[in-house]
Amino acid sequence: MLADSSWTGGGLVHEVCLYESDADLRARVVPFVEEGLAGQQPVFVVAGAGVHALLHDHFGARLADLALLADADETWVGAAQTLAFYRDALRQRLQAGTPCRLLSEPTWMAQAWGAAWSRYDAVANELLAGQPCWTLCLHDRRQVPQPLLDSALRVHPYVWDGSRTAPSPHYRPTDEFLRSVEPPWSPPPASRDCQVVAAPAEARSLVASALPAATEEALRDDVTLAVNELVANAITAAGTAEVSHWRQGDAMVWEVSDAGSGMHAATAGYAPPPADQLGGRGLWIARTLADEAVVRSWGPGTAIRLFFPAS
């Protein structure tokens, strides 16, 4: 068991609180923020209107002491970039070893486009591993669909049980969770179009010729850039890349494979590298642009599938 007052920054605490009343919310949020301010720990808040109203009501002028007070809907810029926002917001304090608290209410999970957040929330376990950060994630049971609430319980190592923060019996390691929610890796159809390329420009030409003429320009740009980045990485790793594409239900699948040394981290590409690190952005961009992205590595060799809406 963890008690707020006892935490002084000894590693990451990633906790979920599923609430269904203002009273539930108040019971968890107020002590979390109060303990942080009392301990002179920077408190970052990204939340919906209900939490903002509660905080204003309870803390009044003391809200000026928060390190960040932001509206969740205004913060959302897509799952990949929102995770990067959190990482960048906390980075300076965490690097200095300062224990931080993050109160996050991802209100976007009540919307269809926010479903992917569960994976990025899972990746936060790796992104903030070992950091002196207590992240409390709030979900309104009345708003968020049950499957996403179930996922929330699986990606958070700790859960608020109504009176205390305790290890979650539902928690699954990040890579296991990601594998369970990503599209299944089925064999590609024999009829797929497949071509070996030795330069990114060849891959872009392939995309240009493969997409139907009526494809919207924005989708065309997204597919082109995403495939380009994967091919550039593959060529760096192995000299050439194999590019395949096929239709799968309502999705257009693009697969880029190579015979390089492999990429075995299930979390690869979910978060961009820090701003001062110049490499490692290609897969992150591909993930950002695609509806889904799945990575498989075996021995030497990697294949990455991107799923886009079929135009």
């Binding site: 980045e229 550039a232 961009i285």
Partner: peptide, 8 residues
Amino acid sequence: FIDVSASR
């Protein structure tokens, strides 16, 4: 067109 490499 500009990719990550050139943006870098």
